[in-house]
Design a protein around this nucleic acid. Structure first.
Lengths: 308, 308
DNA sequence: CCCCAAAGGAAAATATCTTTCATCATGTGA
DNA sequence: TCACATGATGAAAGATATTTTCCTTTGGGG
């Protein structure tokens, strides 16, 4: 086994983590010409060398396998194999160190990879902001109201309409009676049915979408508990809201409409509401959750090319 | 040579840089039990596994060398040797930038503030994983197809249905003719209309939702360009897809259904598609974007009670 | 000019990785 | 329930890569 080898080198070699270039410089004088060539190649392009086999590196440097192995030994590794692993690590570190924050705006001529990175970064930022800015007291109050609600109506139009639907779907799954409305007339028509113990939720980024404010007002006046999920905590919608949940707004640009980050933000809020309610009504929610999972299972083709 | 193998995997495999854990999760369903054991070991302790030979890892996981190699292949590497190099890199990265980790699962008795923090963290993680795992070549190809499309049909049911709607809304805004379908019958009915130069997009996390696969198949057979947005790159849906966009999967738990993170992931992909198309068709898209913004303005109450 | 010692490399020996193939488990349909 | 098909799995053969051995070359003294 390699035990003997390890023992020979046990005295001196902490396998050299990142300071490889330094080690090469230190040891260079004690190296022979061929070994210097190898060491140089290795220090100069760790990533490239990590991709090579002994033979490859030997050819690249115009030397032999034996020399490469000798060099690896001199640098403190049991053999080339281990040097190679260290090189791979080094390369990865250099790579990741070169992550220069993708704060710039998305431009028309950005390559697609940059678009992905920037969008992901922005949405992550939005999530962090939203989480930081969310008033947990208001959130808790809204959850309490929902958990006790006889019926829940949710209003949203446009992009917010999808968020409204998402929340309604989720609440339905855990046994609440929830509806989302994107038609303002129907929304108002339904809002007049609401009474105390019912909950109405309006979702609007601008906080001033009339189509959503109107049904919330009606619900409010009929005594329902009202919640506003909005990016403008001072907007008109809040005057009819018992609880206000604030979503955050990222900077927008031509290629990145506000709808994108507000949606991300709204969805986080909505997820928090959902999980909160699921916690409060755990007894009821748990079986309902698994039940709806079961019901869905048979809609998937039986043998998917995988087990689960 | 390994060429044959490479060719088989050519469609999907960028050697996977840092998002290994995510890849393991994504691919786990399509793995056999033994392979899952290996994948788990690898994802759980990259550093430790990097120190092992095939034989060592096989023994550790109680499997055989063959299985280890198979797993390495499935994860997108030509063989174990390369997986091992990647692991060394990963280990080095983890070493340097230690993880903050709010990793705990959401519990029934978590205070609401913790729920917010955990959800936000998980979704951020999901975004990072998705961005890292997204094949930009496939994405670019899909964008090209969309930019040139005469008509776009988008299929999705359940939670994915909302994502489908979101994409349709956005594409409409920049002047494309896009429809989303969540009714499988109507979807198929419409799919038969599609021809070359049209694009059909199926969105399904499981990759095996019959209601979504069927219309995609029809579109595929009528010569349309087909795109699958799925969390299971090996699932049935992919057999009718010209381009596959992989969404990532976060660990799920009872209180945090898979739908939540898959939605986040899908939305990011969809946003990337949208921005990509907007870039390509900038001349047309820019005025369309501002036009739809104007049209919406008057639906907001004039004097909002806030300035911006 | 010859000899020696260090350096370097070719090729054998070994370790490691990959492939093949026979066996075994699992689920399917009669 | 049983025979069958299908796929999963590991043992071992086969291929590569790495390490070691040992011989050749080179460059200096004596």
């Amino acid at each position: 086994m390699t035990n003997d080898v390890k023992e020979i080198f046990a005295g001196e070699a902490p396998p050299a983590p990142a300071a490889l270039a330094a080690k090469v410089r230190t040891l260079a004088p004690s190296m022979t010409r061929s070994m210097q060539r190898v060491a140089e190649a290795v220090a100069g392009d760790p990533a490239g060398c990590a991709a090579l086999t002994v033979t490859g590196l030997a050819e690249l440097t115009g030397t032999s396998e034996a020399t490469v192995v000798r060099t690896a030994r001199l640098l403190g590794y049991p053999g080339y194999r281990d040097l190679r692993l260290a090189l791979a690590g080094l390369a990865a570190q250099q790579q990741s160190g070169r992550a220069p924050a993708v704060t710039a705006d998305i431009a028309v001529d950005d390559p697609i990879a940059d678009v992905v990175a920037k969008l992901a970064y922005d949405e992550q930022q939005t999530l962090a902001d939203t989480a930081a800015g969310l008033d947990t007291v208001q959130l808790g109050a809204a959850v309490t109201a929902l958990a006790a609600a006889r019926r829940v109506d949710i209003y949203g139009v446009g992009a917010s309409g999808l968020v409204a639907q998402d929340l309604a779907q989720k609440l339905l799954r855990i046994g609440l009676i929830a509806h989302s409305h994107s038609d303002p007339h129907l929304a108002v028509t339904n809002a007049v049915q609401l009474r105390a113990k019912d909950v109405a939720i309006a979702i609007t980024h601008s906080g001033s979408t009339g189509d959503v404010i109107e049904p919330l007002r009606v619900a409010f006046e009929h005594g329902a508990t009202t919640v506003a999920v909005t990016g403008r905590p001072g907007g008109p919608v809040t005057q009819y809201a018992d609880h206000i949940l604030t979503t955050s707004t990222a900077r927008e640009s031509e290629l990145r409409p506000a709808a994108m980050s507000s949606r991300t933000s709204q969805l986080l809020v909505v997820d928090c509401l959902f999980v909160g309610v699921a916690q409060r009504t755990y007894e009821k929610a748990a079986p309902a959750l698994s039940a709806s999972y079961e019901a869905l299972a048979h809609r998937h083709t039986p043998r998917g090319g995988g087990s689960r």
